[in-house]
Design a protein around this nucleic acid. Structure first.
Length: 438
RNA sequence: GUGGAUGUAGCUCAACUGGUUAGAGCAUCGGUUUGUGGAACCGAGGGUUGUGGGUUCAAAUCCCAUCUUCCACCCCA
């Protein structure tokens, strides 16, 4: 009976490839991912941000309330749990963050500086810079409505870029403000509320299409000739244009304040771009996106973010000013690879202990424990094997040091420490192995 | 969700356009070398040609379906 079962299992050929749009991370890939994550975490902590986390699943209603329609309806992984609840795997962090803040709205001391590095899922067609499973750094400051909070996050961004050793000519932080669109529609174009979303969308795709196509697009929105010209004019605005309307437009004055603050901080690689609008429905003021401008290999934003002062309202709570961003791992690693900015892969093991005779294994284990206590990452050869093979193994794994313990060494109560790079060998006692090796 | 391309050994690619037993480089393993790695040489293992149908005397090659990956749209990290 049992053999029958085994045969039956043999007939089922399971695929070894991961689920569509996801990928397995072998040690080398983990090394690169952790390189990025460690920098994110280190810099976030440097700025006084604290780590938090939320469940991977949420009720679908959370996303229906405020995320974009596309994200909530089409890109959401959903299922019914056994109690009949509609559950979603989180596609983004901000709604969850808003939820946990709203839950403790009354007792939290402000401002709150929070970050999280988490896994997210979106049901989409995979392509460059876009997969179904990805990680994101979410970093948010809550409780400060001033431009200072935005400047701080932008300072954080630039510090991370520095840590990643990114060349200045390869990136640009594009900044705009949602209130500016209100001003355009209400004060300049004087169009009805329904037309606003169409115009917003047109402005969003402006950098992607040709001038003529843009004109056609606006014509299709039933805009008058004069209005079309005004929109074409708007997407080319610079800070000078904002100066003229700063008394009348909240967006303009906020942007001017932010840019003057950034200037005093000596922050470069930032640009006012009127066509940055961002899709998610909850943004209210400043919006930002980071782009690779060194070539056309990475047309997708490395991250996007903005101000979302009203998000707590969906929980029936008092408003709370908030500003934050979601920084993607896929897009960023693509970018880092494009410019060869990732460090060479190096395994963790610093020292390898050979086994010349299987009788010596307890000696190996004891020495390994001793060295590990001293902080040296130590790997032990577990099977008797020709020495050349053991050295070959250490060499292929780029382990910098090898400790040889054989008959000769045992007699003298010493070990032979070999530097794999220089081939130098040193006969010494175990206690003499330097704690800081490498 | 729409459109376009793709799939041959672990990886990168061949196979004279439908014709014997699907090959090579790299990688892996073994040996030359039982206490010294990186080089060289010798050898070995590894494939239902993504999967399932169909056409044909004959299919990696042609047709259909399906899946994967990639690219664009959409959306977005």
């Amino acid at each position: 009976m049992e053999t029958k079962n085994i045969n039956k299992n043999k007939d089922i050929k399971l695929s070894t490839s991961p689920y569509k749009g996801t990928s397995d991370s072998y040690p080398e890939e983990m090394f690169y991912r952790n390189y990025l994550f460690n920098i994110w975490e280190k810099v976030a902590k440097k700025f006084g941000y604290e780590e938090y986390d939320t469940p991977l699943v949420e009720e679908v209603a959370l996303y229906k309330a405020k995320s974009g329609e596309e994200l909530a309806n089409k890109q959401l992984y959903t299922f019914l749990d056994k109690g009949g609840r509609e559950i979603a795997i989180r596609p983004e962090m901000t709604p969850s963050l808003a939820r946990i803040i709203a839950a403790k709205r009354e007792e939290l001391r402000l401002p709150l500086r929070l970050f999280n590095i988490g896994r997210f899922y979106r049901y989409e067609r995979p392509q460059r810079g876009r997969t179904r499973e990805f990680f994101q750094l979410n970093i948010d400051i809550l409780g400060v409505g001033e431009r200072t909070s935005e400047a701080e996050i932008i300072q954080f961004i630039m510090t991370v870029m520095q840590e990643l050793k990114t060349p200045k000519e390869t990136y640009e932080l594009r900044i705009s403000n949602r209130y500016l669109l209100d001003y355009l529609c209400e004060e300049i174009l004087k169009v009805s509320e329904e037309k606003k979303s169409g115009i917003t969308k047109a402005i969003d795709i402006f950098p992607k299409i040709k001038r003529e196509e843009f004109k056609e697009y606006l014509k299709d929105l039933n805009l008058k000739k004069e209005q079309i010209k005004q929109v074409e004019d708007f997407v080319q605005w610079d800070l000078g244009n904002l100066q003229e309307i700063k008394e009348k437009s909240k967006g303009a004055s906020e942007l001017l304040d932010l840019f003057s603050l950034l200037e005093t901080l000596g922050i470069t690689n930032v640009k006012f771009c009127p066509y940055i609008v961002r899709g998610l429905d909850y943004y209210t003021g400043t919006v930002i996106e980071m782009f690779d401008i060194g070539g056309d290999k990475n047309p997708r934003a490395l991250f996007g973010g903005g101000r979302y002062d009203n998000l707590l309202e969906i929980f029936g709570k008092e408003k709370l000013p908030a500003f934050g961003l979601g920084w993607g791992d896929i897009t960023t690693l693509d970018y880092l690879r494009t410019y060869n900015l990732l460090p060479p892969y190096t395994p963790n093991t610093e020292l390898f202990i050979t086994l010349m005779d299987k009788e010596y294994i307890d000696e190996s284990f004891k020495i390994a424990s001793f060295l590990r206590e001293r902080g040296i990452n130590t790997e032990v050869q577990l099977e008797e094997m020709r020495l050349s093979k053991q050295l070959d193994y250490a060499n292929k794994k780029s382990i910098p040091w090898v400790l040889i313990i054989g008959e000769e060494e045992k007699e003298k109560d010493k070990v032979l420490l070999k530097n794999m790079k220089t081939s130098e060998q040193l006969l010494l006692s175990v206690t003499e192995v330097p704690a800081k090796i490498g």
